[in-house]
């Protein structure tokens, strides 16, 4: 792969993601104050000791933003990885096995997708106790329906190619066919899909937190910070907009990379994009 062939927009996206991840990893080092420390008056304007001002309880907004990157990215990433693994395994199994298994999985998936994700999440979270791992699990299961659909379509596309038939005629087993014949050819579109799901997870988690059903206080997370500070808006205090902008920026960065990945995805016939 040629570094120079990566367009500027993708570089911006990569840089943005890198900064967010660095903040998440080194939060205690970078953040000037503690995550939960009340350090000043409420809703102090930006500047002075507090670069971005303070929040509704007088905590440093910048510090909470940096710690919030930790929670937001960790939960979104965990949910995406989980949903992706789940969706991929089930969809590839459906595509390769076909017949009854395929019908069963696909019909159930249709049913899951007939309910809007957010509504589904609201119903389920109303019942379940509020734990972080439950939140991640719910997000992952709901999102895996989308992954399943894409994964199955891509796998079926490739599975009917003659080189897969040729491998079957040779007597190759299912594992070889999935991992050596199908998977390498689906990598590019699936990578793009992973990015898309990650961006969606960030937005979805933030929405849930904003509605009070995601990450529970006092842990900092970007969606929850918007919720904490939303009452300030009427007084012209922009504290709620800062975490909102952080969510938007991260999502845009991920989407910029995804956009590039999608354009780069070479068709099966049109040469190898060396992934």
């Amino acid at each position: 792969m040629n570094l120079r062939s990566i367009p500027l927009s993708a570089w911006i996206g990569i840089a943005g993601i890198a900064i967010a991840i660095l903040c998440a990893i080194f939060a205690p080092v970078i953040a000037p104050f503690g995550e939960r420390d009340v350090v000043g008056d409420i809703w102090l304007p930006a500047g002075g000791d507090f670069l971005l001002g303070t929040d509704n309880l007088g905590r440093d907004l910048l510090s909470r933003l940096i710690y919030g990157a930790r929670t937001t990215i960790f939960v979104a990433l965990a949910a995406t990885v989980l949903s992706f693994s789940l969706g991929m395994i089930l969809s590839f199994a459906a595509a390769v096995m076909g017949g009854f298994v395929d019908q069963l999985f696909s019909r159930f998936n249709d049913l899951m997708m007939a309910i809007p994700t957010l509504i589904f999440a609201l119903v389920v979270l109303a019942v379940l106790p509020q734990h972080l791992w439950i939140l991640i699990l719910v997000m992952a299961v709901l999102d895996s329906t989308r992954v399943f659909r894409i994964g199955r379509a891509v796998a079926l596309d490739v599975a009917v190619m003659e080189f897969v038939e040729a491998a079957r005629l040779r007597g190759e087993g299912s594992l070889w066919i999935i991992f050596r014949e199908i998977l390498p050819n689906t990598l590019s579109p699936l990578l793009a899909e992973f990015g898309l799901r990650f961006a969606f997870s960030i937005l979805f988690l933030s929405t849930l937190s904003f509605l009070g059903l995601g990450i529970q206080p006092p842990a900092a997370d970007w969606g929850g910070m918007v919720k904490d500070n939303k009452d300030g808006i009427i007084f012209g205090i922009s504290a709620a907009l800062v975490p909102g902008a952080a969510i938007a920026t991260l999502a845009i960065c991920v989407n910029l990379v995804v956009d590039w990945l999608m354009k780069r995805t070479s068709s099966l016939k049109g040469g190898r994009g060396d992934a």
């Binding site: 904003f210 918007v226 808006i233 709620a240 909102g244 999502a251």
Partner: peptide, 12 residues
């Protein structure tokens, strides 16, 4: 890429 609530509060 913009969350609905961000657009909403921005407009408000």
């Amino acid at each position: 890429s913009l969350p609905e609530f961000f657009i909403g509060y921005l407009l408000i």
